[in-house]
Design a binder for these strands. Structure first.
Lengths: 130, 130
DNA sequence: CCTTGACCCTCCAGCTACTGGAAGCCCTAT
DNA sequence: ATAGGGCTTCCAGTAGCTGGAGGGTCAAGG
């Protein structure tokens, strides 16, 4: 399989796939003309990567997950540790964003949003104790 | 005021303050020895920037908000537009993260997390339809 | 046989918003 | 005179791609 077909099937841009090769996540073969030649196993890895990235795992997490996936003797605890850590980060991020959203939503609601210059949003950015 | 003092008062790293000067958000004066010399107005801008960034506004948003702040004849609608747009992005991000969290939290719960290799997390990354 | 267009290749630069570090000047105190 | 701390600039690196230049390859149509 050439990169175009793989890109379509895995739903990843060709650029991204080349990048993943650059950083050693996959190692497709090469045809005599220099074109990358993807095996089924490469496709599987790319699909795995796509799903991992879609769940927000970092590239380094993906690298580790991929290694665990390849290792038939892995301990599920190792996988779970990565996922739990990631989950905690997500929870923290959600909490942060919700706090921001509440503040912002309140400010947007109290701003007239007309032609006049008075604006509680600017007032808050100007005066709120950091 | 030298940069160290400003950094302390504004709660921003000196590096960040220099960076903000580089990209034209502030333009402190210079002493004869080459040291940056910050006025009160620079401090205020930095505090404004700190709060805007803490609410997740991008640097470009900050630049625009700062310009509106400086402009006595601004229309609050312009401020509100920036904030609303940002708010919508936050809402989208929260929704995305919550979806991820739900998936991840379920997976983590169903994974034994022991010494055995079977793992629903890997199973999902391997098989879930993209 | 030649051309056209769709592929594919590599390499370099740029994105966001900083952050770290090196090399070196300045200022104050001892 | 020296030691320390603070200040300066400049360069490089972070994450995860993305865009573009410049060029080779391949299959189909004329």
């Amino acid at each position: 399989m050439n990169i175009g077909e793989v890109a379509k099937k895995s739903n990843l841009p060709a650029k991204t796939i080349r990048y993943y090769e650059d950083i050693g996540l996959i190692t497709p073969l090469r045809d005599t003309n220099g074109y990358r030649s993807f095996r089924e196993s490469d496709m599987h890895k790319l699909a795995f990567l796509g799903r991992s990235r879609a769940l927000g795992f970092t590239i380094e997490d993906c690298r580790n997950l991929l290694a665990l996936w390849d290792d038939q003797d892995r301990a599920s605890a190792d996988v779970r540790a990565i996922a739990s850590e990631h989950l905690e980060q997500i929870e923290r991020k959600i909490a942060d964003l919700i706090a921001i959203r509440d503040t912002l939503s309140h400010l947007v609601q109290t701003c007239a949003g007309d032609g006049r210059p008075d604006c509680p949003i600017l007032a808050r950015l100007e005066k709120f104790p950091t």
